[in-house]
Amino acid sequence: MERHEGKGPRLVALFMLGTLLFNYPILALFNQPSQVFGIPLLYAYIFAAWALLIALMALVVERGRTP
C-alpha cells in the first residue's frame, strides 16, 4: 500500500479533470452544429475526451505498479 502513494491523489485529480471536461461550460463550447470528419463536433469531443481520460487513468495505474 505504501508503495502506491501518489496513485490516489493522481486519480482524484483525473476525476476532477473528467468532471471539468464533461460539464458546463466546457461542454457548451463543443455544443455547436459543426462537424469533424463528418462527425458532429459534440460527439467527437465527448468520445475523444473520454478516451483521453481513460488513457491517463491507465497510465497512472500501470505506471504506479513499478514505481
Binding site: 486519480l11 482524484v12 476525476f15 473528467g18 473520454w50 481520460l53 481513460i54 487513468m57
Partner: peptide
C-alpha cells in the same frame, strides 16, 4: 468512468 477514478480511494 469518473467514479472509478475515485475507487482507488
Amino acid at each position: 468512468t469518473l467514479m472509478i477514478a475515485l475507487w482507488w480511494v
